[in-house]
């Protein structure tokens, strides 16, 4: 099937930010693109219905942000994220998930995603999250921060230095994991909130580099278990 390029009713303003969507259910896909097109500063340029199609079509449009569903037929959203990130390192990928499953979200983040959103997020929150990501980083929840710190500590031995967390990054993550909001962390460390964001962005990148393939493998593993009937999702 050909990718659906949504015709815009309004004229595309030059500063509009390009968004792509990967979602297999047609009505959901359409509603997402309508919703995004309803934001004046965003433009949905490409809506794909499978991971394979996304890898083919999205690079042509070079969007700033990709909204990626986790559960896709054949190639999963996590696998697609990993491959897409190789093709378009500048593009920010946000995982869409129906359920708040931290394990899966963490896997997606390791695979190269730059953030995640629940599918039931309010339009206003969606808008803000998109702006955040474009501005240079997505906020990190304390739970994810905790997992990031743990995963980096676990592999501290066998990774070369450039991929380790810097002291400052770890400091920020630990404070995040303890529930402090970004503002409070910025105050405590005498940094601006923007600096905090840029540190977090760097953390995401480091995480992607040394765990992308591993995340895909782990996802495939967990899929295997799912089919055994012991796991959900």
């Amino acid at each position: 099937m050909k990718p659906q390029t949504i015709e815009k009713t309004a004229k595309a303003a030059p500063q509009q930010i390009k968004i792509a969507i990967v979602e297999d259910q047609p009505d959901v896909r359409e509603n997402w693109s309508r919703l995004i097109n309803s934001f004046p500063d965003f433009d949905c340029v490409c809506a794909c219905l499978s991971g394979e199609e996304a890898l083919r079509e999205i690079p042509k449009h070079r969007p700033s942000v990709v909204l990626m569903d986790i559960f896709l037929p054949r190639m999963s959203g996590i696998e697609c994220t990993a491959q897409l990130k190789e093709l378009l390192p500048e593009t920010q990928i946000i995982i869409l998930t129906a359920m708040n499953d931290k394990e899966l979200i963490f896997l997606a983040l390791q695979a190269g995603a730059d953030g995640y959103l629940l599918k039931r997020t309010k339009p206003a929150d969606l808008h803000r999250a998109l702006l955040d990501v474009v501005a240079g980083g997505s906020p990190m929840s304390s739970e994810i921060a905790r997992r990031v710190v743990e995963s980096f500590r676990r592999k501290a031995k066998d990774v070369d230095k450039s991929l380790k967390l810097s002291a400052r990054e770890e400091e920020i993550l630990v404070l995040l994991s303890r529930g402090y909001p970004n503002k409070a962390i910025a105050d405590q460390l005498n940094l601006s909130v923007e600096t905090i964001y840029s540190h977090l962005k760097r953390v995401y990148e480091k995480m992607h580099v040394h765990s992308r393939t591993e995340a895909v493998i782990r996802y495939l593993d967990s899929q295997g278990k799912t089919s055994m009937g012991t796991l959900l999702d």
């Binding site: 959901v28 997402w32 919703l35 309803s38 129906a98 359920m99 599918k119 309010k122 339009p123 959900l232």
Partner: peptide, 22 residues
């Protein structure tokens, strides 16, 4: 629950938002 019920509800939320917007 997740596959049938959850997916359906999520769809409806989105549908409602779009309808509201338009």
């Amino acid at each position: 629950i997740h596959d049938d019920f959850g997916t359906q509800l999520t769809r409806l939320v989105l549908e409602g938002e779009v309808a509201q917007n338009e």
